[in-house]
Design a binder for these strands. Structure first.
Length: 253
DNA sequence: ATCTATTCCTGGCTGC
DNA sequence: TGCAGCCAGGAATAGA
């Protein structure tokens, strides 16, 4: 989002083209017609969505697992969208096609139904919301309506930092621990942003640069390797159909 | 409200 | 070397 902004804000969409089924709702050719001539007023982020505020509506882009929004490069087999601007171009590539591009009127958008931004939420409000829920903590943190923007990696990393077992029940987490979790989430996100995100396989920013935070993961992807705090081998289980990494000694149930 | 399984997709990896 | 089979996962969906 941050690297897309300078290439996109103030530009006018000269021509749009979409391929494949994941452009919703409606017909992709109709979308191309709707977008042509629109000016990009602003680009912001809401949860995992990159939101383009246009003179005639809102375009929301979700990168899914392997989506890339880049400002250069050739159109290839995995290119699913092209926005030709009056100056430059925005190309949407997505190998696994888990991403989504959606167009809404001035109001709409799935991004409106998301929970609060973790970096805008006070610790007190977070703790209250958390302790009201009867759910395992990991699936809850992945629930975008509860909290917007956390994915599998950042949930595992945050729970490790807070010393909370991924299967712990949210309503049974002590106030103190919950506060620690809020701090852990903020710390994890801020560090990751500072390092340009996590590039496990495909993620790159608009200029095609990979992130560096994957080198700092403490539990994610480190199954069998010693916990950086206590040396116990990191364990991997499946929670809610998601690979889940934690230290069985530092993160007691 | 919460949980589980299923679906979408392809590159990369494993094992023979 | 080749190839079949499995795995990763965000989120919508259905059904319990």
């Amino acid at each position: 989002m941050r690297t897309v902004r300078p290439h996109a804000i103030g530009r006018t969409i000269v021509r749009a083209e979409f391929r494949s089924r994941f452009v919703t709702p409606g017909d992709r050719d109709q979308l191309a017609v709707q977008l042509a001539g629109s000016r990009i007023l602003d680009v912001r982020r809401r949860g995992k969505f990159i939101v383009f505020e246009l003179s005639q509506g809102t375009l929301s882009v979700h990168l899914g697992m392997t989506g890339r929004l880049i400002t250069s490069g050739e159109v290839g087999v995995h290119t699913h969208g092209v926005l030709e601007l009056d100056q430059g171009v925005l190309v949407y590539d997505d190998i696994r096609q888990f991403g989504r591009i959606e167009f809404f009127g001035p109001q709409g958008g799935r991004a409106e139904q998301l929970g609060p931004e973790p970096l805008e939420l006070t610790a007190q409000v977070f703790v209250e919301r958390l302790r009201k829920r009867v759910s395992r903590i990991k699936p809850l943190l992945l629930n975008q309506k509860f909290l917007a923007g956390l994915g599998n990696i950042y949930v595992d990393e945050s729970l490790f930092r807070a010393g909370i077992h991924p299967l712990a029940f949210a309503n049974r987490v002590s106030r103190e621990r919950a506060l620690k979790l809020h701090e852990a989430i903020v710390g994890t996100l801020e560090e990751s942003i500072a390092f340009g995100g996590s590039s496990i396989s495909d993620y790159v920013d608009a200029e095609g640069r990979r992130g560096g935070f994957q080198l700092l993961h403490r539990v994610y992807g480190r199954e069998g390797n010693p916990c950086l705090a206590c040396g116990t081998p990191v364990k991997r289980i499946v929670v809610g159909q998601r690979g889940t990494h934690f230290c069985p000694r530092c993160q007691k149930r």
